[in-house]
Write a protein that binds this DNA or RNA. Sequence first.
RNA 1: GCGCCAGUAGCUCAGCUGGAUAGAGCAGCGGAUUUCUAAUCCGCAGGUCGGGGGUUCGAGCCCCUCCUGGCGUACCA
Length: 578
Amino acid sequence: MQEFYAEASRRLAAITGISEADILPVLQRPPKPGMGEIGFPCFSLAKEQKISPPQVAQELAGKIQTGAPFAEIKQVGPYLNFFLSQTALAENSVGRILPAPENWWRSDAGKDKTVVIDYSSPNIAKPLGVHHIRSTMLGAALCRLYAARGWRVVAVNHLGDWGTNFGQLMVSYKRAEADNPNVPVDIDALLKLYVKFHADAEHDETLNDEARNWFKKLEDGDSEAVRLWKVFVEESLKGLKNLYQRLNVSFDHYTGESFFNDKMEETAARIAARNLLTKSDGAQVVDLEKYDMPPCLIKKSDGATTYATRDLAAAEYRQREYGFAKCLYVVANQQELHFRQVFQTLELMGYDWASGCEHVKFGMLSFGKGVFGDGNVTGSTRKGNVIFLEDVLDRAVAQAKEIISENARDDEIKRDLDALAEQVGVGAIVFSEFLQRRMKDVTFTWEKALNLHGDSGPYLQYTHARLSSLKGRFGRELPQEINYARLASESERAVMLALSGFSGALDRALAENEPSIVAEYLLELCSVFNRMFTDKENHRIVSEDEELSAARVALVEAVRLTLAEGLRLLGLEAPVKM
RNA sequence: GCGCCAGUAGCUCAGCUGGAUAGAGCAGCGGAUUUCUAAUCCGCAGGUCGGGGGUUCGAGCCCCUCCUGGCGUACCA
């Protein structure tokens, strides 16, 4: 599409005296089909020449150079609109996709640049709740998006694997061990220990002191504490990785908080060496009053480091190890102030790469009516107000299974029932994350989570399955030469136009770190395709007309490839049957 | 109090960076299947774009102001 805009600018520049560079940005897509593909607004020229915009458009229409790739250039209201010829549009979309099914959408915009993406980063020792899906899927999609644009991507899981909650687990574990020497420590057992601790601590204050004590022992390297910690981390990680696998998520590094324990002193020393540290109420802080922020706490009054210190150490480490151009923190917007403080401190430390750090924030997830009682509540593992991500996935998969077996049209589908249900059920949950811009708060309801109709993952997957079956219906390879002129209807034009927008959607998604733009694009693509496909009288794909069938199957194949790639980027499977 | 974010159809959200008659999904009503998958498609109904000012040929989008909600506001992470 880009080159058509450039061509339109060239022709306009030749007759208006305005430079191509000034014309290009004002060109825009007309709002409705049938109005052309590129529009030039004539308002400012009209003002200069003191005649009406439609008149200007009319005059330009008379002067402008016509011909391919445009079928027509004409005045539409106050605009001069360019209509692409059907073949130009087809060659730019279908003709570009089919010869390079593996990589037509790739670009090397990020060549030789590294982006570190810190995402998911849960506190372990308890299972993931539904809310973890936000950072996890957002981050995973961003990883794929950056990779698609040629970036070298380093995916980091900054696990919460250190802190007093491990002390709490140890207390709970030790108490259970007193009754039964073989305490189970798998992820579910750890959750029970965690919940039990908080229940017991309700009426026994001393337990909290005991937990702090155990954590202190851990920090001091006590062998039993360290042994238990390692077991807890390992077991938690097992459960976690299992879930990540279901979600198509992976990481290059699991460098959690504990990884930076021995790196924070140096960081603090470097801050001190820059004369940035001041004492305040017994604590050591970086004063940020100049930047209208509360101070960044480096060491508490008892000398202990803080999570700001840890993030500073982590940023330094990442720059040192990976040499990133960008470092994205996919973390809830509650932490916005924290990251502003950290980034500001990095800048004060003299790091010019600090400007590459970015907080990719997102809104809160709360539970709607009917999930826990009838009001909006936020999750709390301690109080039992949690919906575990795994349960949500299982429930969605169960529902998908029911629907698939109801609709199953052949034995092959029945045979693959479990695998298909997994793809569709998980797909529904994953896609729901991309149904709104990331900054929106999300209210979880079972009704929404289990929706398999309308704007949903299964809708896209279903469309992909339909598309897939058509190629088989055609039953042979596509011919080398395809007569694209046969794709002559408005509906087919709309599909081709949608196809040509894929790359632009990826670019926009990347520019805004907003994968939902890809989701929105895919819904639109499927919508225009389904509209055409359902019109069986006028758009039978495979018919006796050899030439027409080939052209239409080529179009279908281009849509299928685009949809499959889009689904992959978002982390959804693309089943060929369902 | 201050800072950040959000406010668009009954509900959930788009609106491509200031342009053409503000669009989807869900819910509601009415239709489409002897023929390539009805998890689909078509139609109807539904809007003072939170309120008020301003800038502009033109504002859902930019500026000011107020209102509502969420989050944050150093020794939890």
